[in-house]
Amino acid sequence: MRLEWFGRGYAFGMRHQGVRQVVVLTGASGGIGRATARLFAGRGAAVALLARGEAGLKAAAKEVEELGGTALPIEVDMADEREVDAAATRVENELGAIDVWVNDAFTSVFAPFMQIEPEEFRRVTEVSYLGFVFGTRAALARMLPRDRGAIVQVGSALAYRGIPLQSAYCGAKHAIQGFNESLRAELLHDRRNVHVTMVQMPAVNTPQFGWVLSRLGRRAQPVPPIYQPEIAARAVVYAADHPKRREYWVGASTVGTLIADKFAPALLDRYLARTGYDSQQTPQPRDPRQPRNLWQPADEHADFGAHGDFDERSTRRSPQLWASQHHGLIAAVAGAGLAVAAAGAAVLARGR
């Protein structure tokens, strides 16, 4: 391996000199996956784009090629383990050994729990949880014999803290968290050079709010503050380059949510019971004609891109993301500050 420059800092790249990085992205046709594909493409990676929607995949592949990467779009239902494994085989046959696998594909239902049909709940679980399991298994089957590679699970603050109206999605994210921790411990036990890490996301301005099955009376929205998908994408790429860290937190709202849940979960229950319904809906009524991607891809005939409809309310900056990526530097600066303060106090004490 060699030390490589990846735009914003040095990182140990998961490839050898002169060999392009091979990356697999699930859920690559829209949202965070789409923004992440652009970043990997910009540094010349070969990017396998896994998703269901034909139009979204074609548009994503075109962007990857225009940005200097190599694109391999593959239509895959992540709930089908045979399709996932076949896609991984195709990637290695056409692009080469997989260096990075990013699990991001999901679907959901916006509704109170008792308004979600059992088959809908099962479908969300199969795509949004088992899809990560099947993707991880396909990646490990190829990475472990080589003893190198990185797997990034795109998580959420909701992996720790459930909120109303998203029981199926929250359940899947909680399951991914437990699965990933178990797997990480196994890899550490076996002293493997294959690493898994998880990136916990805040509310992101992605197309999902216009295509997820909703039974809400009003239009669904991310819970403010809202971040642009490029922030999430930078976190994913950084995690892929630094996969030994167990997880990354993106956005001050993620940090606040996780801390509040740790120290005052019952109080947070009551707060979300009071605010969680309105904060996830705009004042506008829901369009009954909006697409639903639970069973069929919403971007089969139209490309939705990376952004949702909330650009004017979304931020492109996250100082907390930088802090999450530089724990060591922050600790060193804080330690130096404490040392200086202690030395100053000692001088003052001697002068008295």
Rank of each mutant, 00 (worst) to 15 (best):
W5V: 12
F6T: 14
G7D: 08
R15W: 08
V24M: 03
G30F: 00
R34W: 11
A37Q: 08
F40Q: 04
A41P: 07
E54H: 12
L57F: 07
D77M: 07
D80L: 09
A87N: 03
A88H: 02
V91L: 06
N93K: 12
A97E: 14
N103Q: 10
N103L: 06
F106L: 12
T107K: 05
T107I: 14
V109H: 02
A111T: 07
F113I: 08
M114Q: 12
Q115F: 07
E119A: 12
V124N: 01
L130A: 05
L130V: 00
G135I: 02
R137F: 00
L140W: 04
A141N: 13
M143G: 07
A150H: 01
I151T: 04
V154T: 05
H174E: 10
F179P: 00
R184P: 12
L187H: 02
V196P: 06
V204N: 02
S214T: 14
E230L: 00
I231D: 01
I231N: 01
R234D: 13
V236K: 03
Y248K: 05
T257M: 15
K262Q: 14
L272E: 14
T275P: 06
D278S: 13
G305Y: 01
T315M: 00
Q320I: 13
L321A: 10
A332R: 07
A339Y: 03
G344Y: 05
